[in-house]
Structures are given as structure tokens and as C-alpha cells.
Amino acid sequence: MPKLDRLGEPIYALFRMVIGFLFTLHGAASIFGVFGGHRGSGHAVAVAVWPTWWAALIQLICGALVLTGLFTRVAATLASGSMAYAYFVVHQPQQLLPLQNGGEAAAMFAWAFLLIVAAGPGIWSLDSLLGRSPARASTAGAKPAFGLARFARTQSSGS
């Protein structure tokens, strides 16, 4: 899979950016009433209404941070937790499965952000540009995909 190894970092960076962008759009729809508004109502959520407005604020801010790759792990942790909360408090009491309770987006966002927490900002991020993320290790000129540099070092030094 040499092609995947070479493309892993850019694909992951695009994944992080798309997830951040989509999350930002959800927040903007609810806060500003754009793109169809909150849940397609055409309206914005009233300011400071718990938990809807606060969730939208988390979506807007954390989505933008993940999109740009700034404070990526912190923002993704908060975003993942907020989506897990949304799933278990709002959706799961209605029915068990996400397909039945309308919680597909919450479940997918929660897991996508958890992946971003684990993998970090990657390339094409402000964290990387500002030197906030660890440098990628290189083995014979090839970079391990998905931020697994530390794992690759421990495996090669341990055997």
C-alpha cells in the first residue's frame, strides 16, 4: 500500500478539515439562522437557551478550530463530548439505534472527533505551522500515516 502511505497524511488533513467545516455549518445554522436555520426551521436559536444555543456555540467555535487545525485536540475533545452528550441525552432515549432515533449525525461526529483527538492536527494545520504539534518521524524517507510516528518508533526500537 505505498500509495496509501504517501497519501495518508493529506487525506487525513482533508478529513479533519471537512469534519470541522460541516460542524461549523451546523453551528452557524443554529446561531445565525442561515442555511435553513436550526434543524431546518429557518430560524436561529434564542441566545443562551440551554442546551441548544450552547451546543451551537460549541459547534461553531470548535468546528472552526478543527477546520483550521488550531488547538485541534482540545477543540475535538469538546466537540466529541458534546456530540456524545447529544446522542445519549437527546436521541438515544427515543430509540436504541441511531437509524431509529435520528442520531446518526451526532454519533458520526462524536466518533470522527474522537479520531481527530487521537491522531492530532496532522499536516496542513495551524498547530503544525506554529510548531504546536510534534514533528513526524521518518523511516527511510516515508512518513507513517495518520500520526502514528510514535507507534512506529516504539515498534522499530523494541524489536
Rank of each mutant, 00 (worst) to 15 (best):
D5G: 10
S128F: 02
L70N: 00
I123A: 10
L4W: 14
H91F: 01
L14V: 10
P98C: 00
I58P: 04
P144G: 07
T72S: 13
Q94V: 15
Q95F: 13
A149V: 06
K143L: 13
A142G: 04
I58G: 13
P144N: 11
F113G: 04
Q100V: 00
I31G: 01
G69E: 06
A110F: 02
D127H: 00
D127C: 01
S159Y: 05
H38W: 14
G20V: 12
P144C: 07
F23T: 05
L114I: 06
L96G: 15
V18N: 10
V117C: 08
G122Y: 08
Q95M: 14
S156Q: 11
G102Q: 11
Q92F: 06
L148Y: 09
G122P: 01
L65I: 02
Q95C: 10
F151R: 09
V47C: 07
H38P: 00
G81P: 01
T72A: 11
V49K: 13
S128Y: 03
G20I: 14
G40E: 10
G141W: 07
F15M: 05
I116H: 14
I58C: 14
L70S: 00
S41L: 10
S125H: 02
K143Q: 15
Q92H: 14
L60Q: 01
S41F: 12
G147A: 07
P144L: 11
I19E: 07
H26K: 12
G147T: 05
G42N: 13
L60I: 00
V49L: 08
Q59P: 08
L22P: 03
C62R: 01
L14E: 00
D5F: 12
G81C: 02
D5N: 11
R73C: 07
L129T: 06
G42W: 10
L67K: 12
F113H: 12
R136V: 08
A145K: 09
G40K: 09
A56C: 11
F71M: 08
I123M: 10
L115G: 15
S133L: 09
G8P: 00
A64R: 01
Q59C: 09
Q59G: 13
S157L: 08
P2R: 12
Y87C: 02
A29Y: 08
A55M: 14
H43E: 15
V34A: 14
H38A: 15
G40R: 07
T139I: 01
G63H: 02
G131S: 06
M83Y: 02
L57R: 02
G103H: 13
Q94T: 13
S156D: 06
L4S: 13
H91E: 04
